[in-house]
Design a protein around this nucleic acid. Structure first.
Lengths: 259, 259
DNA sequence: CGAAATTTTGATCACGTTCAACTTCAGTGG
DNA sequence: CCACTGAAGTTGAACGTGATCAAAATTTCG
């Protein structure tokens, strides 16, 4: 490995995706380098730009470095359901790339910076470095758990609980990626969009947010949100952080950790 | 490989889990045998029995051979959200085994017959046969897509659409596993439970079902459901089968298909 | 500064929940 | 075989939540 190569690799190790993953799978340098080598380079995406469009083929994986996006679907009655907010460290193109045509759309919420690689190249890399498959599996497991909580939000939680739980989840994920200090984070998303995440109307989101503010539970200044009492919010919504507590079995599994 | 061994292996190849998976990942005999060899044997589960309990450690994977179960969570206001119905070919213990403690509970809806193996043994098998990791990844991808549709159900579809979409999904999954003929299938689940899947009250599920019956769209006789006009139901609910159309890239990917 | 997007507020109303009663059905034991 | 029991299905009436629609206030951005 040349000196320049080593520098490039070390810099990629700082990538939010690699950092986030390292909590669950102990990737070797060779694994990380395998991904780095298939990256097609950094891209800038403009706020509001479409990245994936439902119904069309999409064969890429984008590793988010900075900025936020939403994954959503538009129904034929015009309503929109946002499935999730994508943050630094998350992947765009999952699960779209696994299917013939993308089942959902993705659009940028803010200006973004991403690293792109082709899905095919990634799959080839997975064959050579099986730990990468395991890494992707971990992402999928997290996604599943997050979606499950989202189902509970829209299915059985009150609007008040929904909004609170939503804020807690974002805060938790942002903090895990170093994009939030204790309790405070940037939320560049309109109230209408929050409604589309949680199955509520925009006016009602507005009323719920006001109540959260008046109860002193959250403070909102522009797009900056502060959660004033995490404890209370967490017990109120039965929030459990999904970014923590991997099964100890995985930690012990030597083939996963060392290779 | 001895003759008896071959017979045992061939019989395991008929297992709904192996059959279902083969649509996406071309497992070699060695892969299938790797799983078969770590199975601890068949178990019978009684209707209504708890299999996984939220908050407790769970370190097993159960491959469903026959019967149905539900994955759910009970909130502290007493409400229950059912996250999904588990059918023959599905796995119990996912994603619970990946976490320190199970985030959700699983209970048998009917008498069941399952094959059990320890999570640790499965992970070890994944290290030796990386295609198994890919297989599990595929399951996770499907799960994600199914959950996403579920979010759309509870978030933005009308109760009428929800129930119709729910019936279509179950029918589609059962049919893929050979447990339903065209349009007709067994649904051993109470209306209250359907409500807990879709975020509705039991009385309202009842009314919606009646309307579906009166419109001639479905016929219900005991626990046997017949969907009379799949086309209409599908366009009405924007239903897309998730068990189909894997990305062509995966089909081409030689390392995935042959090993 | 002007235009567009977003937030905020209020009034009205429909939908679906809630609660309660009653019916039907399946399973069990006498 | 029937009586008994508990679960599940069915129905109705009343209520409340949150959607809808519309308009005004405010912010953002070109």
């Amino acid at each position: 490995m040349t000196v320049t190569h080593k520098i490039v690799l070390d810099s990629f190790k700082q990538h939010p995706w690699v950092v986030g993953l390292s909590r669950y799978v102990e990737l070797a340098d060779a694994d990380i380098d395998a991904i780095r080598s298939i990256l097609e380079g950094q891209r800038q995406i403009r706020k509001r730009a479409d990245i994936v469009v439902q119904g069309y083929e999409y064969r890429k994986l984008c590793f988010i470095e900075a900025g936020m996006a939403i994954r959503y679907k538009v129904l034929h009655n015009g309503k929109r359901q946002i499935l999730g907010v994508l943050l630094p460290g998350d992947i765009i193109g999952f699960p779209a790339s696994f299917y013939d045509r993308a089942n959902f759309s993705v659009a940028a919420l803010t200006d973004m910076s991403i690293q792109v690689c082709s899905f095919e190249a990634f799959m080839r890399a997975c064959c050579q470095r099986p730990l990468l498959t395991m890494a992707l599996l971990w992402l999928a497991v997290q996604e599943t758990a997050t979606y499950a909580e989202h189902i509970i939000d829209t299915g059985r939680r009150t609007p008040f609980e929904r909004v609170a739980h939503f804020l807690l989840e974002l805060h938790s994920r942002l903090k895990a990626g170093g994009n939030a200090t204790s309790g405070t984070f940037e939320l560049p998303i309109s109230q209408e969009a929050i409604g589309d995440v949680l199955g509520l109307s925009a006016p009602h989101v507005n009323r719920v947010l006001r109540r959260l503010r008046m109860d002193g539970l959250v403070t909102i200044d522009g797009h900056t949100v502060t959660l004033n009492d995490l404890k209370v919010l967490q017990t109120m919504t039965q929030f459990e952080s999904l970014t923590l507590a991997p099964s100890p079995v995985l930690k012990r599994c030597s083939c996963v950790n060392r290779r």
